[in-house]
């Protein structure tokens, strides 16, 4: 059999090395395009500052502490809101995935609210909670909780019925089956749901901070707009992307440790 170039064959995953090389290559290429378009004067600096300017601005913001203060506030907001939303959705999603009552009680409601645009809640939350942290929590919660409930409910429903049958034949009561069979079995799916929804939570955080805040990463972006500081704006957007990527990778790393049993050792 002849060896075909696997990179251009349908269904062939790229090798580890070529994956990273190509992936990085695209970044380098885009960075280069950015550099060239600004260095050549093709795009005015006001609209698109040079990479070096952005870097310099970010370094000076880091040096005077602004960056860290913004970061701390934003991390606190997303941390609290995400934990509350996740804790609630795990409880409600698991119950809804297991018991008919909870499914009937929550699924139609969640499905309904899920289709309401989160952005439309912003004015309301400002009226309720002003520009306080609670308003950020509310927006992040509205944006993630309802999605999480549905995804977690799905993960719980995917637990094989025979696992539950096994618990029954071992004489286990329903609460024991829920805690010792259903939850551990659904955990990889639940973790995945949390990882995906954390990505959305970042978006809702920045949205809340853009509209009504006196601190945070999103706030800094709005303020910079007033002073035409495009370098800060771009620097912060890139930073947000980086933060999303890092938290995602952290969750994936935790997944590999938590669910080691899914990998083959031999």
């Amino acid at each position: 059999m002849t060896q075909r170039s696997s990179l251009f064959t349908i269904g062939q995953p790229p090798g580890r090395r070529s994956y990273w090389l190509i992936g990085l290559g695209v970044f380098v290429l885009l960075g280069l395009a950015w550099y060239l378009s600004t260095a050549s004067g093709l795009v005015p600096r006001l609209f698109l500052p040079a990479p070096a300017d952005v870097l310099a601005r970010m370094l000076s913001l880091a040096a005077d502490g602004t960056l860290w203060a913004d970061l701390k506030v934003s991390l606190y907001r997303i941390g609290v809101a995400f934990l509350i939303s996740s804790a609630m959705s795990i409880v409600i999603g698991t119950l809804a995935g297991c018991y008919g009552f909870w499914k009937a009680a929550s699924e139609p409601l969640v499905d309904f609210i899920r289709y309401m645009p989160v952005v439309a809640f912003v004015p309301l939350t400002i009226l309720w909670a002003g520009t306080s942290d609670v308003q950020k929590f509310l927006i992040i919660w509205i944006g993630t909780f309802f999605q999480q409930v549905l995804m977690i409910m799905d993960a719980v429903k995917r637990v094989p019925p025979d696992f539950i049958g096994l618990g029954r034949t071992l004489g286990m009561r329903d609460p024991a089956i829920l805690l010792r069979i259903v939850l551990p079995s659904a955990l990889p799916g639940i973790w995945d749901a949390l990882r995906i929804s954390l990505g959305w939570a970042w978006t809702w955080l920045v949205l809340a901070e853009l509209v009504a805040a006196t601190s945070g990463l999103g706030y800094r972006i709005t303020v910079s707009q007033r002073f035409f500081q495009t370098d800060t704006i771009i620097g912060y957007i890139l930073l947000l992307g980086l933060l999303g990527l890092v938290t995602d990778q952290l969750m994936r790393a935790a997944e590999r440790v938590l669910f080691r049993y899914n990998r083959r050792r031999r």
């Binding site: 049958g165 071992l170 551990p184």
Partner: peptide
């Protein structure tokens, strides 16, 4: 259902987060 009747399912129904020994211990503990 009850402990007086053991069931072997066609789908193996080993709990994936427990190793072979722990899977048996799980039943014994129950």
């Amino acid at each position: 259902a009850g402990l007086d009747r053991g069931v072997v399912f066609q789908s193996y129904t080993l709990l994936p987060w427990l190793n072979a020994r722990e899977n048996i211990e799980f039943a014994l503990k129950a």
